[in-house]
């Protein structure tokens, strides 16, 4: 389940930042990806909300600073 979500998140992130998906994996974070600044974060969250059909809580969105954290938030949301 988490691997599938992680793969979809990486695909969404690549699409949001217009970079190759191979540059993103579950260990990626704001510290490792150049495009992931505040504007990049905005693009990512909006793409994820569209792709997963979710609306994230604002308190979660500011903490979704790594692919792993994003996957956890989405998994929890899907579980609910």
């Amino acid at each position: 389940m988490q691997e599938e979500i992680c793969s979809r998140v990486c695909r969404s992130a690549a699409s949001a930042w217009k970079i190759d998906q191979t540059q993103i994996n579950k260990d990626s974070s704001m510290d490792t990806i150049t495009q992931w600044d505040s504007l990049g974060h905005l693009k990512l969250i909006m793409t994820l909300e569209k792709d997963f059909g979710l609306i994230f809580h604002p308190k979660d969105t500011v903490r979704m600073r790594s692919i792993e954290k994003i996957c956890q938030v989405i998994e929890a949301a899907k579980g609910n």
Partner: peptide, 13 residues
């Protein structure tokens, strides 16, 4: 301008 986009798009202000 950039923060305004964040407020609306991500932070749900």
């Amino acid at each position: 301008f950039e923060v305004e986009e964040l407020l609306k798009g991500v932070l749900k202000f």
